[in-house]
């Protein structure tokens, strides 16, 4: 069951999670949506457990894990920061506990938290190359991580896809707009989709076209530049 609080959050997408993930609900948020969402959660008595960065093909995914002391159920806000210019809004002024977690992400991934009062190295020697950035080949696409990212069609894993990217992008934008309703619908069908997830994801697949917020052309460039 999705906690009421999660439904009131503005997000790109929301899914209820399998208990196997250890989370109750995940929300995909944009940089603008993060602060209001965190504010609502904070006001509702949630606390920030950690900020866990994951380097995926689409960028640095920041997982903000929130939990509640009375009604446990982990709510994860997922925010994607691009590889080129990794930045995210800072929660440090709102939730002082976020301060160190963000500095840790800054150390490990080089993510620039805008509005952080004192963003400097915490655990590493200042000026160290962020150690947790993976090489482009070993990155996995974001949709393998979570259902909040649009899952690819089972047969869509084709080379032509890249050519179709421009055409598809429009459809994706629409999908993004509808994402929330989709997610709501997906709630009932969730266990099935979770089971379908591993099959849906094929190795080596180019996923930049799958992310609605990244413009395909840019993503191509970025991918090329990295390789």
């Amino acid at each position: 069951m999705i906690p009421n609080i999660a439904q009131s959050l503005k997000a790109e997408a929301m899914v209820e999670c399998d208990p196997k993930t250890g989370q109750a609900v995940q929300l995909r948020v944009t940089a603008e949506q993060l602060l209001p969402a965190a504010e609502t959660l904070d006001a509702a008595g949630y606390f920030l457990e950690d900020v866990s960065g994951v380097d995926v093909q689409d960028g640095f995914e920041l997982n903000y894990h929130f939990d509640h002391v009375q009604t446990p159920g982990r709510i994860t806000l997922r925010l994607m920061a691009s590889h080129d210019d990794p930045k995210a809004p800072s929660l440090a002024l709102l939730i002082p506990g976020a301060d160190w977690h963000e500095r840790e992400c800054y150390d490990f991934f080089g993510v620039d938290f805008k509005g952080h009062p004192d963003l400097k190295a915490l655990l590493l020697e200042p000026g160290t190359e962020p150690p947790l950035i993976r090489d482009a080949k070993s990155r996995i696409p974001a949709f393998e991580l979570s259902l909040v990212y649009p899952q690819p069609e089972p047969e869509a894993a084709d080379d032509e896809e890249a050519k179709k990217a421009a055409a598809k992008a429009k459809a994706k934008e629409k999908a993004a707009a509808k994402a929330k309703e989709k997610a709501a619908k997906a709630d009932e069908a969730n266990p099935e989709s979770a089971a379908a997830k591993p099959e849906a994801a094929t190795d080596g697949e180019q996923a930049e076209a799958e992310t609605p917020e990244a413009k395909p052309a840019e993503a191509d460039k970025q991918e090329g530049a990295e390789q």
Partner: peptide
Amino acid sequence: PKGETYFA
């Protein structure tokens, strides 16, 4: 399997 989890 592919995926993520959180355990506390």
